[in-house]
Amino acid sequence: MSDFRTPYPGYDVLAKWASPSWNDQTRQVVRERLLNIPRPRFFNEAEWSVLTALCDRIIPQPERAEPVPIAPFIDAALFEGRGTGTRFAEMPPDGAAWRQGLAALDAEAALRFGGRFAGLTAERQDAIIAAAVAGDVTAPAWEGLPPRRFMRGLVLLEIVAIYYAHPAAQSEIGFGGSTSPRGYVRLDAGRFDPWEAGPGIWPDREP
């Protein structure tokens, strides 16, 4: 698979930082997110290594010298006991599910490829993730943890929630970003306010 290319090169939601699109409270939230990357406090070292490898494969960012941090925020949310409002009956509580799931991914790696998950090639890591997402895993460590629910109902949700909260991720999809007090005027298709991203570059479309 080819590397990711944004349709909106050069667009940056942070360029509007000092404009009416941003208010103080949003600046406070995003400044905190960008400057205070939490220290890992919940996971142990083994779990952490699986988690960071997993995040790297769910959201690969080879083009970035400094990738958007994801794992630290997962750790922080679990450490602080920030809930989601839902625990599926077939699942352990969130923290326990994460610990078991990461261990199970490692066990699956040992079973299939005879190594630690973090040490595998990207292709092999992807194969294990795809199997877990499809519920097609065999390691006994999954006992009591439905892999499909774990991946789709917890892991992927948490990772995209953290990644797409980041300005860099919002810029790459051409999202308008912060909107208060200034919202939008032009609501028709193909019409953009000057403070939005310009038209994207779409290889599948005539320019």
């Binding site: 698979m1 080819s2 769910i58 993730i129 995209v160 929630a161 797409y164």
Partner: peptide, 23 residues
């Protein structure tokens, strides 16, 4: 993104590519 991943299970570069179609 939550809707996309929980329903399709997509991840990796393909996830970023499909999210880039957001607009």
């Amino acid at each position: 993104a939550s809707c996309l991943v929980s329903n399709t299970g997509v991840f990796g570069t393909e996830l970023r590519r499909r999210m880039a179609l957001y607009n």
